[in-house]
Design a protein around this nucleic acid. Sequence first.
RNA 1: GCACCCGUAGCUCAGCUGGAUAGAGCGACGGUUUCCUAAACCGUAGGCCACAGGUUCGAGUCCUGUCGGGUGCGCCA
Length: 686
Amino acid sequence: MTRSFVRPSLSFLPNTAALSYERPAMSSPLARFRLALASAVASRQGLSEDAVPELERQIRRPNADQGDLAFPCFTLAKTLRQNPAELAKTLAAALAEDDRWASVEAVGPYVNVTYATRLLAETVVPAARLDGYGENESGRGQTVVIDFSSPNIAKPLAFHHIRSTVIGASIANLHRASGWTVAGINYLGDWGKQFGLLATGFQRYGDPDKRADAKHLVEVYVKANREADVGRVKDAIEAPKMARELVSELQAAHAKLVSEAGADFETQKKMGKQVKALEKKLRALRGISDGDADPLSDGCTDWLHQLEAAAEAAKAELPQVEARDQEARAFLKKMEDKDEAALAEWQEFRRTSIEEFEKVYARMGITFSSIEGESFYQDKLDATVERVRDKPGTRESEGAEVIDMTYDKGEPPAIVKTRDGTTLYITRDIAAAQDRFQRFDFQRSLYVVAQDQALHFRQLFRALGSMGFEWADRCQHVAFGRVHGMSTREGRLVFLDEVLEKACAKARAICEQSEKIAPEHLDDAVEAIGVGAVMFGDLRNLRTSDYTFDYDQVLDFSGHTAPYVQFSHARACSILRKGGGVPAAADPTLLTLPEERALMVALGGYPDAVKEACDAYEPSLVVRALIDIAQSTASYLTAGNRDRGMRVLVEDSEALKGARLWLIDGVRHCLAHGLGLLCCRAPEAM
RNA sequence: GCACCCGUAGCUCAGCUGGAUAGAGCGACGGUUUCCUAAACCGUAGGCCACAGGUUCGAGUCCUGUCGGGUGCGCCA
């Protein structure tokens, strides 16, 4: 089942969109203006058609109140060996003839032009009302595979899982909107030690009546994971020694700094740097956030004593922790040896986990073409290893089989088989990549996975290339930044459904105050707004940047948020309802107010935003375009509150009212479409 | 130690493959509900774009160095 985003239609209106205008040949209205400007420049200077794309690329948005498009003349002037300002004047004079431009002005080395409002209205308004506005055909006939969400089963779905899920789903929607055939795969981490932890932990703590209770399983897993975390306990045992070494090293460095005060500048500088580095390390170890604090003072000895005590406790704990880790591994081994009881238990836990995840996915309105897992490739990995041995070959390193290919300096080897004979992450990913190419014959294969794994994917793609797969360079890692501050003060993870729930609780409190929402639509609106706010809040960030999780920010519905965009949409719907629907015919050229003009420009930019967002795998570009439209809409509608003549439902002119209704219908259609691309819904009343 | 990413307003972040006077949201301050939804609108304040050099007609953007932060780095996924 492939998710296709829902085409918005108003429940109370007939679809009148396609009645009186043909679908424009060019999917972006504003592209017409840019092309016209670039072509005019080219023909004025006697340049060939080939020069037009480059000229078009140079077009910028001018400063506020200086028009709609700006052409900087620097580059062209240089090739023509002319003065940029002179060239700007020449071009401006030539462009002035064209009635596409309401104004043409040479300002220094720039040519600034303003769209003729009449042409803008004719181009944008009817187009924005059409089904498919914002979409394009650039991917027609091509297939993209998108690996996204892909959580580890048996572990809880924490807040940060929202990133891959919602970015991936949006990128899938963007490709659909650009004509691609999309295969969205949720590639679950459904094999590994975590099942051993869960299964053995359950024997100890599990409530047999709650075997199918996902929440209970998460509790068991979290507890079992902690109690079998050998690394944590060993670190605790080592901690006092390391800490004391660091402290004495730092003290020695301090002493050296004093005793060698007479040394030359370079040496002193080096020593100072070393001291600072050590201080930083110690601060990090002690958890001091103040970057200026002296890590040796303020209870440093107390801290060391605490570490000692903790280490003693850890030593006592170690045998049991190791035993539990062994138990978990043994369970995994049973699974790999096809022990029926173990596999049955794995199946049961797996199913419960997936069902729980699917509740959250359903709440977010996210679906996949298929839900698969690493376990699927478990019995196909011998063939994969053989294929690697054949080409590019493997070499032995400390008992492990390492892919024999080119490595960057200092890069760790890519291991396909461990010295114990088990396979690894990359082995399974090589098998999965081949399988996907055989199934889908893709032009693109995207992996929407955190930036942390960049190295893994670099090696994966290089390995595929070395194996002779010419499609290796069609694979891309679509990386995204981390979410910081994901633990609560008690050190507990923030769960995704808990955040969604809190956002919905807040949405409910606000929605219950609204007289606009019919009681039967209340629950639906609450979900759309609450869940939308959280997802939109993630998508608004540039994909690659890290950001910090902040409950106050997630639950803030003011400013440029999903509820803001949804609110503009709901107001537009409200006006359409009140106006009795959209007339079949209207004359957009009657729209001449500055507020209307700004709105048309924002609306016209939407298809460009979708195209660019798809090409750059960057949903935040759509977010910005929607905010732009919502903001222009809010300003426009508020202006109508002050001045009755500026209202959409203006009293004294049916023709003007019709034109404004068309514009507002375009807004509502476009906002709903854009929200849909971002996996958010658009309630008709708020 | 090696590699990659980042440093822009009090906070969170934009700034489009180098272009004019660096922009939003939050927060602060001041206005706007007899007015199609105040989850809103309008306005004000707030910046040595980490620092120092370099390339260029032009640098927040490119190069080098320094300082400060993050992440990854052999048998986990």
